[in-house]
Design a protein around this nucleic acid. Structure first.
Lengths: 238, 238
DNA sequence: CGAGCGTTTGAGACAATTCAAGAGATGTGG
DNA sequence: CCACATCTCTTGAATTGTCTCAAACGCTCG
């Protein structure tokens, strides 16, 4: 799987379908015309393809246009540590930006399209389009919030139900009904990310299904009672 | 306590003692001369004073020059939720920057000195000094990392020992020996932040003392074996 | 089809929480 | 300066939740 070649090609922000959710979000039409020179390489990744590897030189920020990614690193003892799942539109690759080397690897979980912003170009972008700074703030902020969402919960049930809701929201933006949710990653990865045991994921899903809130078929989850799932995820008892 | 008036006064980055750790970190001497116009109000806070309140208009970024702060918000059910403890030099106030209103309050735990950067001024700063963008990235990154440090740990012992090490590092930068650590916040606040029960904090501290790693006197902790504490905090068994 | 991985399920062990009571510290007003 | 009320912290006992270990099952892919 990994062997398949990336097909880099160039994209201008002007013709990008999700520019309004991305760096140029705050630009008006006139300013948009001024960014003809804003164009970046974008990469198509197949599931299992790596975008970058731990230890490589840190030279890009990335913008996820579509698909789903996982960033992780290997601890000294060899254990994998899942940092994040990336969902579009997401700005990532800024973690550890003060380091020369990348402290993490990023792998595609789904067919994905990623836009590369060279760090070397960032200052220039910033000078020409200072409005973009605020948008970068917002994008970073969304990422931080997304991660807090699942990890700050205390019980396994809260964590898992929050995670399901997060994913289902993503699938809704893809046009699927929001009560549908596809687990593209393994239970192991989710468990690692949420800092719980993989067996616990299994048990919680079983419980949620038993309560009639969801229906699990393989890696597909249908949400029957999204309202109650929200309650659970926020620790509100009914 | 809360009633005591803030004493705002103006600071230029040029004369600031910690400018090299703050926004102008990457500027050379020539560029530093160019930032005479960079000056911000700074506030002195007494313990218990609020810097800002949930619901107010979101109009500043803040830079903590000295002291210690806590940011938190109140959930619908009235429960307090501790988001972060801020240690200098830290850039904060960018969480929820896409919202009009502040989603959190910030209170001083110690005598603190905070520099205010108006959001309205940010674009201008950015245009004149694009080098600062990268420094903002770095500062945000440090904050995210600091929070991950304690929260990604799995056991209560790991969380608490990581937290102690974090604080002790802070006190070292103040000139205290690094094996000294003052808890300016209540166990309740720490517990809330680390998502564990306050009783557990008490028990873990008791255990660590029993193992001879620390000595607890009231809110003062003396670290006897910092190396082993590091092992514990990283989950390495000895 | 068989190998290998991921998932499910159960039983026992362990960690952390909850609840409750008491000790210690802090602040206030007389 | 003391007495009282209020917080915070400590400690114990019972309970709950999650983890670990182990075994079996089910997919997927060559």
């Amino acid at each position: 799987m990994e062997g398949i070649k990336h097909k880099p090609h160039t994209n201008t922000c002007q013709e990008c379908r999700i520019a309004h959710l991305c760096l140029p979000a705050n630009l008006n039409k006139q300013q948009m015309r001024g960014i003809e020179q804003l164009q970046f390489n974008s990469k198509i990744l197949n599931p299992g393809d790596h975008l970058c590897h731990q230890g490589e030189k840190h030279e890009h920020l990335y913008l996820l246009r579509s698909g789903m990614l996982k960033s992780y690193f290997n601890k000294e003892n060899g254990d994998e540590f899942v940092m994040q799942f990336h969902l579009p539109p997401e700005l990532f690759g800024w973690e550890g930006i003060d380091d020369e080397q990348l402290s993490f690897s990023i792998v595609a979980l789904d067919y994905s399209n990623v836009c590369e912003v060279p760090l070397s170009q960032l200052k220039e972008i910033n000078t020409k389009h200072p409005e973009i700074q605020m948008q970068i703030f917002k994008l970073i902020n969304q990422t931080v919030r997304k991660n807090n969402i699942a990890m700050l919960r205390t019980t396994a049930e809260q964590k898992v139900s929050t995670f399901i809701l997060l994913l289902s929201k993503h699938y809704r933006t893809l046009g699927h009904p929001q009560y549908l949710c596809q687990l593209t990653m393994t239970h192991q990865d989710i468990a690692n990310y949420l800092r719980i045991a993989p067996e616990t994921i299994s048990r919680v899903l079983h419980n949620l299904q038993h309560q009639g809130l969801i229906k699990v078929t393989r890696k597909k989850i249908v949400i029957n009672n999204i309202e109650k799932l929200h309650y659970l995820s926020n620790g509100i008892k009914t």
